[in-house]
Nucleic acid binder design. Structure first.
Lengths: 229, 229
DNA sequence: CGTATCATTGAGCTTAGTCAAAAAGTGTGG
DNA sequence: CCACACTTTTTGACTAAGCTCAATGATACG
């Protein structure tokens, strides 16, 4: 039997969910909203994939740990992004919270699928969300396919700018460390740092704080993505 | 009014479709089977995404052409693979036939979606197929994330071995040129060639023809994927 | 049988990784 | 509020992996 405090907490979280616009409002009644600690593993590679998730607030990373101990981040998950989809019975990859106190909505997969069987509209929305994941993965593939490290970093900045801020501000808040960016782009931390100072010296960006980038020359930055030496 | 010959052709193709096991048998009645020439563009970036496709025989590539003229292949499409899914109204990327005379099944998207609305089983299967695409893209991200070129090539060979041959033979038939492999792995053609001879000298593979690889030491090749210097 | 495409190999140069260290934040407890 | 430890970020010097340019072999195809 839940205490008054925990019920209050749950209500707060439910409210947080309804404030945040997200693609599957239809599923709100089934959602359980969870708060996560920094570096907490939300779902683990190889574990039964019995839940789907949606980021409500904060940022998470989908990561693969290679046998040599290195980590690759397959993609960052921002508010509104779904994860936990898999073609198999187990999760393909782990997802870890990056921001302390980030919140996620958790949906029991079987119940959602049962609901989708009787609500074609929901089934369509789930397809949309899955297709959105496909698009994001393809975009990430394009970034990794760039030639120079500076191109990758420039792409990363523009992608973050496009995804994170609904407003057309030229300020981009990087919610992750240089290490996370490095693992995202599969380059070394030092190279990320050097690329950022490179872009700064070329007058394309300026660093307000270490994690706040101001895009000075958006055009130039977009060109820098594509092989500008 | 179709000629006898074209009806015969259509029947042949329909039969080809039913011989080939593929995930959405349920859609066979809606399918139109097409034969494609080498390098023919099956769907074009930016065009209205009004069809979904499935590779029946042969191989295709999903490609993005960068502004500097370079091409990146986001993934190879083998028999049973679906493409044409997008979160938007237009195709994100072009898909081109690689093998002369390859055949694809084409499904009108609107009709399929309408059918899915009344057949929950079909809707589930489409989700499965979409999730499968997600898995493949993630696998491709992992390959691109490898450090050395030889690791990438080794990963590519093992991935092709796993995907193409249902039989557990150690012969892998590469259905694509070195150029295609290079664009898949975002390395230069020369590097692909050098990596293959490297793997050969290390006794992990042998080249029967230029496009037929025999995996000599599967264990060793799997290790070569992960940081073996 | 000639031509075009594909594949391999070599030499020089550029990029980014590694190792090392300093600088700048961040948080904790006295 | 400051001192201290810890993490994060930046910068430098060196090295190695892979790209480019160039040339030669091999294959496929009309």
């Amino acid at each position: 039997m839940p205490s008054t405090a925990s019920v209050q907490l749950r209500n707060d979280r439910r409210r947080a969910l309804s404030n945040q616009p997200h693609p599957l409002r239809r599923l709100d009644p089934l959602a359980v909203v969870l708060s996560c600690h920094r570096n907490q593993e939300i779902c683990s590679e190889g574990r039964p994939a019995d839940h789907w998730y949606c980021v409500v607030s904060g940022v998470a990373r989908r990561c693969a740990t290679k046998c040599d101990g290195r980590r690759q981040i397959l993609g960052l998950l921002l508010p509104g992004d779904f994860f936990g989809f898999t073609a198999h019975e187990e999760y393909d990859f782990a997802v870890e919270a990056i921001v302390e106190g980030m919140t996620i909505a958790s949906y029991p997969r079987r119940r959602v699928e049962a609901l989708a069987d009787v609500e074609p509209e929901l089934a369509r929305e789930i397809r949309e969300v899955a297709f959105e994941t496909v698009s994001q993965l393809q975009a990430q593939l394009l970034i990794l396919g760039r030639i120079t490290a500076t191109e990758k970093v420039a792409s990363f900045l523009l992608a973050m700018a496009a995804r994170s801020s609904a407003d057309q501000s030229d300020k981009v808040l990087l919610p992750v460390s240089r290490y996370d960016i490095a693992d995202c782009l599969t380059v070394s931390v030092e190279t990320v740092s050097r690329s950022l100072t490179d872009l700064k010296h070329r007058g394309l960006i300026s660093l307000l704080g270490t994690r706040t980038v101001r895009i000075v020359d958006r055009e130039g930055l977009a060109e820098a993505r594509l092989n500008c030496h």
